[in-house]
Design a protein around this nucleic acid. Structure first.
Lengths: 200, 200
DNA sequence: CGCATTTCTTAACATTTGTGAATGTAGCCC
DNA sequence: GGGCTACATTCACAAATGTTAAGAAATGCG
């Protein structure tokens, strides 16, 4: 997902500000927003089921989404989280319209603004700037992924946990710890151990 | 980097076949190839220095390239390798023309076909299909990165080593083992131990 | 509320991996 | 050849993490 700061004043940022219910919003953002739908997910409800084709991009207004996949031994592995103001989609499945090995589900009641693939195409046609915006979202996912790799290569579990807390502030209190452990690539007991060590 | 199989007959594949000195090549590939330069790197010579802006995309004809970066403690971390027929570039630096945190250097004498950013733009203009091709290269890097994350999350060092051997056949004999250890996120001694265990 | 279920913690022990030091080995230069 | 250097291996020990099992705490539900 993309965590977007609010420094710049570009068209894409106007959209973000609109999505975030900013008061001072320009007309363009309003028009763009007409391409989106709003929908609500109950806890444990899926935005995307494993094995299905991803047909939309989502912007999280409230709640938490979780990406997961199934490893070679059939275990569920948590790959990522998306919080308020993050974008969420399974890019490969969405862009190639092929079945997704990942599932995306809500960890609590979650409200999202979604953009179907058809709407995205229409939007790109009407607002070419939006295509650049969309590409940036994808690129940032890519960069996050690379940074995550470096973290695994160079940090131990405790350091990765520290980094997790910094990257997802507050999430530790909203997500079951065994999910976070999976995300960090460790056993739930190890996370418990790390937390005990840190709190003392 | 992208490892491209040769199943399809598309324009992009024709280019690949030309780059690989295939005999049966169409005119389009020949024209496209005029946009490329050929250059040779000595052992330890850089395709891209850390901190510099990446100005080209490279296709490895022979030899090996290695991506590395510097972690928070100032240690060199090996991030990826590119072998014969792989594409190599530092995408973020290339696409945003900003300094690259990664370096790319040759581990042995290496020959590459390179495409400057200006040539790429010209090429995209003349052959819109190429843009799709380029995007696929990037996408595949993205997907590789995600798979690598899953490997770190779910496999131990020995299993990651097995996977490395499968993914980069033959590389183990051409690359210093401490580089491979770094790539796997383990100490050189640990790799040595794993190799001993496997060979017995 | 009381019970059942899920999640978290703790502990003991096993396994994996890191670290530091010593040694081995191969290539290279003079 | 002798000596230097870089790299790989081995070993002993330390630290980190996994595994198994048990119990504690939290949660959901009748």
């Amino acid at each position: 997902m993309l965590r977007k700061d609010r420094a710049d004043k570009s068209a894409e940022n106007l959209l973000l500000r609109y999505l975030q219910q900013d008061e001072t919003v320009c007309e363009v953002a309003e028009i763009i927003l007409r391409f989106f739908d709003t929908s609500s997910l109950a806890e444990n409800e899926h935005l995307l089921e494993q094995g299905f084709i991803c047909r939309k991009v989502a912007f999280v207004e409230s709640g938490i989404l979780m990406y997961y996949r199934t490893d070679q031994e059939g275990r569920e592995v948590i790959c990522d989280f998306a919080q308020e103001r993050d974008w969420a989609t399974q890019y490969k499945s969405f862009s190639t319209q092929t079945p997704s090995p990942f599932g995306i589900k809500a960890l609590e009641k979650t409200t999202v603004k979604t953009l179907s693939i058809e709407s995205l195409q229409a939007l790109n046609k009407e607002f070419p700037e939006f295509e650049i915006f969309a590409r940036k979202i994808i690129e940032n996912e890519f960069f996050d992924s690379i940074n995550k790799n470096t973290a695994f290569q160079t940090l131990n579990a405790e350091q990765r946990y520290e980094q997790f807390i910094a990257e997802f502030p507050g999430l530790i209190h909203r997500v079951p710890q065994y999910y976070i452990a999976s995300y960090l690539g460790i056993a739930p007991q190890s996370l418990s151990r790390i937390r005990k060590k840190r709190s003392s």
